[in-house]
Design a protein around this nucleic acid. Structure first.
Lengths: 192, 192
DNA sequence: TGAGCCTTGGGACAAATGTCCTTTTTAGTA
DNA sequence: TACTAAAAAGGACATTTGTCCCAAGGCTCA
């Protein structure tokens, strides 16, 4: 659920560290706002952000939690549109940044970088497809169990409200499902 | 809801038509099966397919309906994995195909093609993000209204079951929502 | 200290969706 | 034409989720 891309982070820190600018942000800061012009791509050195979209009805939907090596601001470069999501730091955050103009040059001049970006885009599609299919085909309880399996300390990192916005349910429903799950865990422990 | 990419189709037919193989399929044929090795990328010349993922619980989830110019089989090339979706023809289908090896060469040798592919990947991400956010933040009724607005003759093209699998609901629920909508339409017409 | 705010937790009822089952309609075919 | 299978439509009931509320606990800041 927390996405990372160590390959591209390693390549940049080893080969392109002087090409990129570095920046720091505090927890709670908005790095990128929805429906604004985007002029840089950003790559996370360390920390965690949420990438979310605010809908017209006032609800937020969390696309992804991005950790080390994940890129944002690149889609808008390719599609020539304003941002369709916002990015907010959930922890102290260190990022690499590169203006879109330089990004374009790098894509043309550095085949290995080009390939890493292609790969990153493809991974985003693949992951989104599988996530959406799972959420669309299973009860929310199953989605949550799967996530908690991957990340047992989930709620030390991410608030319940954010988790609800990731699952596309209300906080009330999340609490209900968590209660059910704890009940089942209890049963399992007693029986086993 | 039915995705197209006329730019890349135009570029291929004008500049690369002799590089690609062409193939034809009948309605109902499976072009690409989930969890299989993929050796070609495919680009739709004409016709319509559904791109869907079958989950372990027996349910199918439709990722997208692909029309003219849309690409499939490219993600697996970048991620070096087996297919994560199946592709089935919903109409008589004509496609361009290219082996992955040749696709790799073309990406390196033809910057314009490279850019068109990047753009296609970025558009898929952007569209998926917006669709998932909308579906996750709104009642199914709203999603359906939006789709019917874009494509009023939807059910002449796509079966109700496929539509339900696209929305992540059951056929029973889809019928219920359609009934509600027709009732509201009636009211609107009478009142207006 | 205490006021205000955020997060968490949950009761009660309404609305939406799933499950199971039956009937009707449609399309294709022997 | 008659048969068959698939698609479409919907009744009845159970389950899930949303909405609206209220309350407890922790935190900051005047």
């Amino acid at each position: 659920m927390i996405r990372e891309n160590k390959n591209i982070l390693k390549y940049i820190s080893q080969n392109l560290s002087e090409v990129f600018i570095t920046k720091e942000f505090n927890k709670g800061e908005i790095i990128l706002s929805q429906n604004k012009n985007v002029n840089h791509i950003s790559i996370i050195q360390s920390g965690l952000v949420k990438c979310y979209r605010s809908e017209a009805n006032g609800k937020d939907f969390i696309q992804e939690f991005f950790g080390a090596g994940e890129i944002f601001g690149e889609i808008e470069f390719f599609t020539h549109t304003v941002s369709f999501c916002s990015i907010e730091a959930l922890q102290e955050l260190h990022i690499y940044q590169l203006p879109h103009k330089d990004f374009a040059n790098l894509l043309n001049s550095d085949p290995q970088f080009n390939q890493l970006i292609m790969n990153s885009l493809a991974q985003k599609i693949s992951y989104k497809a599988q996530r959406h299919a799972f959420q669309g085909s299973h009860a929310t309880e199953n989605s949550l169990m799967k996530i908690l399996n991957e990340t047992p300390d989930l709620f030390n990192i991410i608030s319940k409200q954010d988790m609800a916005n990731y699952l596309g349910i209300t906080l009330r429903s999340l609490n209900r499902i968590l209660l059910q799950l704890s009940g089942k865990e209890g049963l399992t422990n007693e029986e086993g």
